[in-house]
């Protein structure tokens, strides 16, 4: 797992040139072998296939929404309101005659973009803060850690609600809010990992060779702490989509008539007593399956990367 540790000369920095690299076993460098191994791991993990496939399908549909032959998600035909699922409307139609399926696909664009961008914000900011805190220690660590503690003091969704309420209900504000909420988990994780990795011999050797601190952080510490962060990113994506749906549900996300899964569920609440269940079912299933897929994907990646849980 620790990339630099493949060097057979323990304590030698990995960027030491040719002779050391030549000592590395050829099969480790062989691309076909690596692909074969990766494919074998994927085949042995049905959850990885299920989760990954669903995420791929929903992502492709969301990206291609503008070119797919879908009815306009924002305008409906009032005479065709409240149609149950059938040939004309795959997921039924809503109270103003809009196609629920079309709104689910278009809504996926919002949910997935908020998910990916907010997790990227959390990942980049949190990991950078954690790296700095863990590597430099002292007052830098104290300052960053207290800031992270302060963010962790808030229940996550409450913090996201408060930030969005403060910044205003807009797409980019949802991304910022959920991104900020994601910072602490990445910061904590990367700080802990950095503390472990910086005590290793090859970091000591890199320092002794006079490498700049930025170089050590970027080239030697970051690659070796990435695995758990990637697992966390996958799990955080599930949370981000849930948080976006919650914000939209409360009317704090993207504003209507733009379709979002959370807002559509909230709109459908008023029609539950009439048993128009399909207005909730479409966006509800989409949210549930997307979060479910990210969760099982995260779990599978963790199981693959962590030998202790591989057989559990």
């Amino acid at each position: 797992m620790f990339k630099d540790e493949i060097s057979p000369l323990s304590g030698t920095p990995p960027n030491v040139p040719a002779p050391v690299v030549k000592l590395i076993s050829p099969e480790l460098k062989s691309q076909p072998g690596r692909w074969k191994r990766t494919w074998s791991i994927i085949r042995q993990n049905p959850r990885l296939i299920v989760g990954g496939t669903f995420i791929m399908v929903i992502t492709i549909l969301a990206i291609l929404a503008p070119v797919l032959p879908l009815p306009d998600p924002e305008t409906g035909i009032s005479s065709k309101a409240y149609q149950p699922p059938g040939n004309q409307f795959l997921f039924g139609s809503d109270n103003v005659g809009r196609d629920v399926f079309s709104r689910v696909i278009w809504g996926g664009r919002v949910s997935l973009s908020v998910g990916f961008i907010s997790v990227s914000i959390g990942f980049l900011t949190g990991t950078s803060l954690g790296l700095l805190a863990g590597y430099f220690g002292g007052w830098v660590d104290l300052l960053i850690s207290r800031f992270i503690d302060a963010l962790l003091a808030f229940p996550a969704i409450l913090l996201a609600i408060s930030i969005t309420a403060a910044l205003g209900p807009q797409l980019q504000n949802s991304m910022i809010a959920i991104g900020i909420v994601n910072i602490p988990v990445f910061a904590r994780l990367s700080r802990g990992q950095t503390l472990q990795v910086k005590a290793r011999d090859y970091i000591e050797a890199a320092r002794a060779l006079g490498l700049k601190q930025g170089n050590i952080l970027r080239r030697h510490i970051l690659p070796n702490i990435l695995s758990p962060l990637i697992v966390q990113a996958s799990l955080s994506l599930g949370f981000a989509i849930l948080a976006e749906a919650t914000l939209s549900f409360l009317g704090l996300g993207v504003q209507p008539p733009t379709p979002t899964w959370g807002f559509d569920i909230n709109s459908a609440r008023g029609y539950l007593s009439n048993n128009y269940w399909w207005m909730v079912a479409g966006p509800g299933l989409a949210i549930m399956l997307t979060i479910f897929s990210f969760n099982i994907l995260g779990d599978s990646i963790r199981d693959i990367l962590d030998p202790r849980t591989r057989k559990r």
Binding site: G238, L242, A245, T246, F249, G262, I265, N266, A268, R269, L272, V280, G284, I287, M288, L289, I291, F292, N295
Partner: peptide, 9 residues
């Protein structure tokens, strides 16, 4: 994976 607002509804 189920948001509590969805389960509630």
């Amino acid at each position: 994976s189920i948001p509590n607002f969805l389960l509630g509804i």
